[in-house]
């Protein structure tokens, strides 16, 4: 359309559209000079949140390092869909070793570059949630504890999607996966104690920890660029919906990401040296049902045989996140017109 009304909430946040900005302030993706680190032609599913997240993360990091960068990838969807022999979507030096060792491999690359006096070349490691919170967790914690000069990025789609949607340590309670089916008395995944790796990363008191979603890609770019201003171990945990694994429409990836934040299901914040420094507050708080009902993995919680008791527990989890991270900022609460109808707005990015 020739004319689009500016939505108030787009100003003053990192989701501001490029058309509002001077060329110099435009997003990395909007620049002619973007590196296309993960270039087109790969085989990710339609609406893949991980592919979107990785593209933004790596291009932002490439810009921040002036192209002097190496990427290390753990085994997983991202590795598989990007490198089917003899093709590669990677337009930067890229190494894949194993499922559980991405952080250690990345730390080894960083050590080699330092030994060679080339620590102008920076290292980004990346993995899915399985490679980060489960099988790669030991090497990740070691990398944090040694404060190796690596930015490690987890693309969290809350399950082992590459192997056919099994449960991971990052799968939320009640969610259906291939091995947590809604059968028996406790449908879906168990209610455990949770394994929120950003908080565990903070416990290592590394220089920088951030969470982000693929709904707010300017925010993601900003956090990557900020992470690259630090030396030492840094961690960004990106919430990336998986249409296949979640039973969601490919067109709902951004909507789900935004709802995860607006419900409090996924807290978005930054932390330095173990202390939270910034929180992305909720603009319009919505009940978790709005997030859950868009995904077939929660379908067993709704309808005639639904489980409102479990939905209430999930709401309580979101409420606890809101309280713990201060996701509601009362003074910022009154938002301008245009917000209400556009919580999951398409035009924002």
């Amino acid at each position: 359309m020739a004319h689009q009304e500016i939505k108030l909430y787009q100003t003053g946040t990192f989701v501001a559209g490029n058309r509002l900005l001077d060329p110099e302030q435009r997003s990395v993706q909007a620049r002619m000079g973007r590196s296309n680190s993960l270039t087109s032609g790969h085989r990710a599913c339609q609406g893949c949140g991980e592919a979107l997240g990785a593209r933004y993360v790596l291009d932002a990091a490439m810009r921040a390092t002036d192209g002097k960068m190496v990427a290390v990838n753990s085994t997983g969807c991202l590795e598989v869909f990007s490198t089917p022999y003899p093709e590669s979507s990677w337009q930067l030096p890229w190494l894949h070793s194993l499922f559980g060792n991405g952080p250690a491999v990345a730390a080894g690359v960083a050590a080699a570059l330092k030994a060679k006096g080339r620590d102008d070349i920076r290292v980004v490691g990346q993995a899915g949630d399985g490679g980060t919170v489960d099988i790669g967790f030991g090497t990740l914690s070691g990398m944090f504890e040694r404060n190796d000069d690596v930015l490690f990025v987890c693309y969290d789609n809350e399950g082992y999607m590459n192997t056919g949607v099994q449960r991971s340590g990052a799968t939320p309670p009640a969610a259906r996966t291939a091995n947590t089916k809604p059968v028996g008395d406790e449908p879906g995944n168990v209610f455990g104690q949770g394994k929120f790796v950003p908080a565990i990363a903070m416990a290592h008191e590394i220089p920088y920890v951030a969470t982000a979603t693929v709904a707010e890609l300017r925010d993601l770019e900003y956090k990557v660029e900020k992470a690259m201003t630090f030396r030492g171990a840094r961690y960004i945990h990106v919430f990336v919906p998986c249409p296949l694994g979640w039973g969601a429409a490919s067109s709902d990836t951004i909507r789900l990401s935004r709802l995860a934040k607006e419900t409090g299901v996924f807290p978005v914040f930054e932390a330095e040296h173990g202390e939270v420094t910034e929180v992305s507050t909720i603009r319009r708080r919505v009940p978790v049902e709005e997030y859950l009902t868009l995904q077939k993995r929660y379908a067993h919680l709704f309808g005639p045989a639904g489980r409102p008791d479990i939905v209430a527990r999930l709401q309580a989890t979101a409420d606890r996140n809101i309280a713990r991270y201060g996701l509601l900022a009362p003074d910022e609460e009154p938002a301008g017109p245009g917000v209400a109808q556009d919580v999951a707005g398409e035009g924002a990015v």
Binding site: A104, G108, A112, G138, T139
Partner: peptide, 17 residues
């Protein structure tokens, strides 16, 4: 490193670099 698995993995990264 935190384990032998980490040791060999770091060697893999370093050697590849």
């Amino acid at each position: 490193v935190e384990s032998e698995f980490g040791a060999m993995s770091a060697c893999i990264g370093a050697s590849a670099a």
